[in-house]
Design a protein around this nucleic acid. Structure first.
Lengths: 195, 195
DNA sequence: TAATACGCTTAATATAGTTTAAGGGTAAAA
DNA sequence: TTTTACCCTTAAACTATATTAAGCGTATTA
């Protein structure tokens, strides 16, 4: 069951263990859902109504530029969270898409329910503070990488830092995350084999 | 006094008002500090020991690439927070610099003291969760901007979104934030006057 | 007040990465 | 099983942006 995976995930946040009563409350607010490959769980123009916990599979979050090109800004695999936090809290339409790259299972929670949990299980505030801090650090590192090195160096760091993801993702998706075209990534890979 | 500014800032987080006792506790943990223009409050290689609340003035956070070029990733002016969150929580050396762009006044708090406050004023967890959510959204928008448009469009959006900052910052700093050279920003500005 | 550093601009040359187009291989769908 | 869609590659032409270098004005600092 996906919900036990979520409990295990929260258990990592020692010393903030959830008691039985709290777990039951949690379970009542999360809904489990199966998502097909390529299925969208968020589309541009819609408000992001849920926080998603990935129990199985893999997702990407991306935006589309004026020319119609997609730009990945985040991946999320097992035991990771994904949502357009800005849209979720402001209730404004999102500019982003979230799409399953693999057949997946998620646990989703609605805004009102999450707020209810924040009020009734105060330690969740701390847990989610840490979750978002980690997301922030990840994003900041990505920004630093983008600025501070060539596409080849960025590709190599990606392989290192996300070796598990790298082997699951098509190169097209990696290129989009690195901010380059698939063609150029292909060239980089060719040049690397020569070295 | 800078501390009253911090209280006012926290008051915005209704319905999470701090009572008198909590304010006294808060005040005892924050240290006020005057910072000169160009002075660093964080340098690469050092652990980020503090969270900084900017009461007056303006800061930039930047990294340096292999070629020695600086890349701004964040500005913080009055009533904003700045810190290398990753280094602060992990106690690992930072890869970043934080420097005053103007003569400034800050309130700083140490890691242990902040953790003490998190434990003794639980609602602070929620307040800082929201603070970091906002930081995350800002950074994500920056990433989206970077990917999704030409340097000229990014410059125009920056002027719109941060009109107050834009008038205070030298163009060199804006260029560094936009991920372009000062020379190229100069060209963009020239081209824009022609239109 | 003089000296220096800083910020802005211009322009010529250089390059990392894009665009377009075409072909081949393999997995999904019919 | 056949067809279609997707993914990866190659290469030539192209473009947005970097690099280098030089000059000018105005804040800082000595």
């Amino acid at each position: 069951m996906a919900i036990t995976q979520l409990f295990k995930y929260f258990q990592k946040f020692t010393p903030l263990h959830l008691d039985n009563e709290e777990q039951i409350l949690l379970e009542s607010k999360f809904i489990q859902r199966r998502v097909k490959r390529r299925q969208m769980i968020l589309q541009e123009g819609f408000v992001c109504k849920h926080y998603f916990f990935v129990a199985e599979g893999c997702f990407r979050m991306y935006g589309i530029d004026d020319k119609g090109y997609e730009h990945n800004i985040q991946f999320a695999a097992e035991s990771d969270w994904i949502a357009d936090i800005g849209s979720f809290h402001s209730n404004k339409p999102s500019k982003l898409f979230i799409e399953a790259i693999e057949p997946s299972v998620i646990l989703q929670i609605e805004q009102q329910d999450l707020y209810f949990l924040y009020n009734n299980i105060p330690k969740l505030n701390r847990i989610f503070k840490v979750i978002i801090e980690n997301k922030y650090v990840e994003l900041q590192n990505h920004v630093l990488q983008t600025f501070s090195s060539t596409a080849e160096q960025r590709y190599l760091s990606f392989l290192e830092q996300y070796s598990d993801l790298a082997s699951r993702l098509p190169n097209t998706q990696i290129a989009s995350y690195l901010g380059i075209t698939p063609e150029f990534l292909s060239k980089i890979r060719k040049d690397l084999t020569k070295k």
